[in-house]
């Protein structure tokens, strides 16, 4: 792998693996899909998201390119890869958070339940209320715990008393027992792990069907991390979860599917190297580069 990174530094482009762009026809059976030798194995389940040749530019910088990927419903899908491979950028494509970066431009199609979310007629606000997001660093608003949870629900006109909405969401986020007597306390006074669960509760209160998590545990200690991971396994019964993580053990513990991305050409241009069920990716990767990354030889 050293040679490879050295090659990367010298600007030698790495030939892409010889494979058809999209070998799976929609009518391929689940069995055919699994048996295929292609490192990219689209899951047999129904897809919440279908990404077709998605690319992202920040001005002249090509952040990700040519990503074709189905995200299955009610599963945890992990996006892994070394820093700068574009996994967070890809996540932010899914709820149009990249719209907020003036120079960002998305190509290809991102279908959410069959609807192209980048179509001209689509309102990004409508997209984001259905697709919740939890950020890398816990970012509770400087408001009370209850106001934090209720904020998204209120701006989206969800009916119900604030107290009920807060209680329901906090219970789902496994935070209720810890804060039920302090709902008026500022969200900033909670510990880091609690803050992150508050942010999850805040997202749940909007009643999304997908939750995007951008390295949700990177700022947390191991115990708080464990709690979040347990929570993720709990939540996936009702929600589709996509998690970006640089922690391979975490991906192995929480996810059902794993997508491995790698930056080529000097950290520009992130591409999908391998995708499939997590246990296969971690035990018998089909790509040498996946194996090298997972076994910690680089990244």
């Amino acid at each position: 792998m050293r040679e490879l990174t050295a090659e990367l530094r010298q600007g030698v482009t790495i030939p892409r693996p010889e494979r058809p762009r999209r070998i799976l026809t929609p009518d391929a059976t689940a069995a055919e899909r699994v048996q295929s030798e292609d490192p990219i194995r689209q899951p047999p389940e129904d897809a919440v998201f279908r990404l077709q040749d998605v690319g992202l530019w920040y001005g002249a910088k090509h952040a990700i390119s040519g990503i074709t990927l189905d995200i299955p419903v009610n599963r945890v899908t992990a996006l892994i890869g070394p820093s700068g491979c574009g996994k967070s950028s890809l996540l932010r494509c899914l709820n149009r958070m990249n719209d907020l970066i003036p120079s960002a431009r998305v190509e290809g199609t991102v279908e959410y339940h069959g609807a192209d979310i980048y179509a001209k007629s689509v309102d990004p606000v409508e997209v984001r209320r259905r697709i919740g997001m939890v950020f890398q660093k816990p970012n509770p608003f400087p408001k009370s715990i209850q106001d934090n949870v209720v904020f998204g629900a209120k701006v989206n006109g969800i009916e119900g008393s604030s107290r009920e909405i807060a209680e329901r969401a906090l219970k789902q986020a496994a935070l209720w027992d810890e804060v039920k007597n302090d709902l008026k306390m500022s969200g900033l006074e909670l510990s880091g792990g609690q803050q992150q669960r508050l942010c999850i509760a805040r997202a749940l209160a909007v009643q999304p069907d997908v939750i995007l998590m951008d390295e949700p545990c990177s700022a947390l200690d191991p115990i708080a991390t464990l709690k979040i991971e347990d929570l993720i396994r709990e939540l996936v019964k009702e929600y589709t979860i996509i998690i970006v993580t640089h922690n391979m053990q975490q991906a192995a513990r929480v996810s059902d599917y794993t997508a491995f991305l790698l930056a080529q050409e000097h950290g520009l241009n992130g591409t999908l190297i391998e995708y499939g069920p997590t246990n296969e990716i971690f035990t018998q990767p089909r790509e040498q580069r996946t194996e090298d990354y997972i076994t910690g030889r680089f990244g």
């Binding site: 069959g114 192209d116 409508e126």
Partner: peptide
Amino acid sequence: MTVADPGDMNEALKKRQ
């Protein structure tokens, strides 16, 4: 979660003028 019909989702995501 049930998967919505694409047509419905297209409608749901529409900009509401």
